[in-house]
C-alpha cells in the first residue's frame, strides 16, 4: 500500500513536469500555426525588416522593424536604469543597512512589486511624462525614455529581491574571511560578495529584462506608440507588446493583420526564449 502511494505520488509529479513542457509546446504550436500563416502572403524578409507598420492599409504593410527597435530601446533603457539602481539597493539591503532599515526597505520593495502596472502607467502619464517633456524641452512627454523609467520601476523589485537573496546567501565565512584579512567592508562587497553571488545577480538581471520586455500596459500608456524607427530615446516608440494589445481587439479574424499579430507574438516568444537560454548558459558557466 505504502509502496503504491509512493509510486502514485512519483508519477503525479512526473506528469506535472511533463504537463509544463507540454504547455510550452502547445503555446508555441498555436502561435506558430497562426503566425506562420502570414508568410503565405508576406515574405519573412518584409515582415522582419520592413519599416512600415500599417496593418489597416490595402494591402497591409506589416514591417515590424520599428516595433522591434521600439521594444529594444525601451528594454535597454529600462535595464540601464534598473540594474545599477537595483544592485545598489540589493547591496544596501543585504550588506549595509541596519536591521530595522533592512526590514523597512524589503517591505517597501515588495510593495513596489505589488503595484499593478496600469497604476504605474497612470502615474507615469501624469507625473513622469510632463517631467521628461519639460526637462528635455520635447513636444511630448510620451517617449521611449518615459516608458523605460516606468519599466525600471517595475523591474527593480524583481531585481532587488533576487539579488538580495543571492547576496544574503553568500556564506558568512567568505565575508569574515575577507574582513579578517584586513579588507574594508566595501572591498569585501566588491571583491568577494558580488563575485560569489554573480550567478544569482545574472539571474536577477535576466528576470528583470524578462519582466520589462513582456510588459504591456504601462508601455502602451507611456511610449506614444508611434511606429517610427527610433533615433533617440527621447522619441515616441511603439513596442511589440503594446502593438499586440492595442490591435488584437479590433482586428478581423483570419485577416492578414490578425496573422501578423500572431507572428509578432511568435517573435516575442522567440526573444524571451533566447533571453532565458542566455541566462541559463550564464548560470551554468558560473557553476563550472
Amino acid at each position: 500500500m505504502r509502496r503504491f502511494k509512493e509510486f502514485l505520488i512519483e508519477k503525479i509529479i512526473l506528469l506535472n513536469g511533463f504537463a509544463c513542457i507540454l504547455f510550452v509546446i502547445l503555446i508555441f504550436f498555436f502561435l506558430a500555426k497562426d503566425g506562420l500563416t502570414l508568410f503565405k502572403t508576406v515574405s519573412p524578409w518584409h515582415f522582419l525588416f520592413g519599416t512600415l507598420w500599417n496593418p489597416l492599409a490595402e494591402p497591409p504593410q506589416v514591417g515590424i522593424l520599428p516595433l522591434f527597435l521600439g521594444s529594444l530601446i525601451v528594454t535597454l533603457g529600462a535595464t540601464v536604469i534598473s540594474v545599477p539602481l537595483g544592485m545598489a539597493c540589493a547591496i544596501f539591503i543585504g550588506e549595509i543597512a541596519p536591521r530595522w532599515i533592512r526590514e523597512l526597505l524589503k517591505a517597501g520593495v515588495e510593495l513596489l512589486a505589488a503595484i499593478p502596472s496600469i497604476v504605474i502607467g497612470f502615474i507615469g502619464m501624469t507625473m513622469l511624462g510632463p517631467i521628461v517633456k519639460n526637462l528635455f524641452h520635447l513636444p511630448t512627454g510620451l517617449t521611449a525614455l518615459t516608458g523605460s523609467l516606468a519599466l525600471a520601476f517595475m523591474a527593480i523589485p524583481t531585481i532587488v529581491s533576487i539579488m538580495e537573496d543571492a547576496i544574503s546567501s553568500v556564506p558568512r565565512s567568505y565575508k569574515e574571511g575577507s574582513l579578517a584579512l584586513g579588507a574594508t567592508h566595501w572591498q569585501t562587497i566588491h571583491r568577494v560578495i558580488i563575485p560569489a553571488a554573480s550567478s544569482g545577480i545574472v539571474a536577477a538581471v535576466m528576470l528583470g529584462i524578462g519582466r520589462v520586455i513582456g510588459e504591456t500596459m504601462a508601455v502602451m500608456m507611456l511610449t506614444g506608440n508611434a511606429s517610427v524607427l527610433p533615433k533617440t530615446i527621447l522619441e515616441p516608440v511603439r513596442t511589440m507588446t503594446a502593438t499586440i494589445a492595442a490591435e488584437m481587439g479590433e482586428t478581423v479574424r483570419g485577416s492578414e493583420h490578425y496573422f501578423a499579430l500572431f507572428a509578432l507574438g511568435l517573435v516575442l516568444f522567440v526573444i524571451t526564449f533566447f533571453i532565458n537560454l542566455a541566462a541559463d548558459a550564464a548560470l551554468h558557466q558560473k557553476q563550472k
Partner: peptide, 19 residues
Amino acid sequence: AEEVRKKVAMVFALPIPLP
C-alpha cells in the same frame, strides 16, 4: 578595524577559501 585585522589575522575553524 581594518588596521587591527591586518595586524591580527584569523584562521577559522572551517577552512573556507574565497571563491
